[in-house]
Amino acid sequence: MENVCEKAKQEAGGPAALAKALGGVTSQAVSQWKKVPAERVLDVERITGISRHELRPDVFGISETAA
């Protein structure tokens, strides 16, 4: 299964596009993410449409629809 962080990068158009959309973070930093930092999850959700529950179930829990 594809890493959800990699999926988010692809959905945004790549690490550089995601970094630009987020602002205040470099594309190099985004490229190194193994999982989306908790403080960036809501913005990544807004940009990519990937649920916060999918991005960080350890922080936001599993969505009720997935359960």
Rank of each mutant, 00 (worst) to 15 (best):
E2N: 03
N3Y: 01
N3L: 10
V4I: 15
C5W: 04
C5A: 12
E6K: 06
E6L: 11
K7D: 08
A8P: 01
A8M: 08
A8V: 06
K9P: 01
Q10C: 01
Q10M: 04
Q10R: 10
Q10L: 11
E11T: 07
E11N: 04
A12W: 03
G14E: 06
G14S: 08
P15Y: 14
A16C: 09
L18Y: 08
A19L: 09
A19S: 12
A19C: 11
A19H: 15
K20V: 13
A21R: 14
G24M: 09
G24H: 14
V25W: 08
V25K: 10
T26D: 12
T26N: 09
T26H: 09
T26S: 15
A29C: 06
A29F: 06
V30Y: 07
S31I: 01
Q32M: 05
W33Y: 10
W33I: 09
W33P: 06
W33R: 06
V36R: 02
V36M: 05
A38D: 15
A38Q: 13
V41M: 07
V44C: 04
E45R: 06
R46Q: 08
I47W: 09
T48N: 04
S51M: 01
H53S: 00
H53W: 05
E54A: 02
L55H: 00
L55W: 00
R56Q: 00
D58E: 10
D58I: 00
D58K: 00
V59F: 02
V59E: 07
V59Y: 02
V59A: 05
F60A: 03
I62Q: 13
I62V: 13
T65Y: 11
T65R: 14
T65M: 15
T65K: 15
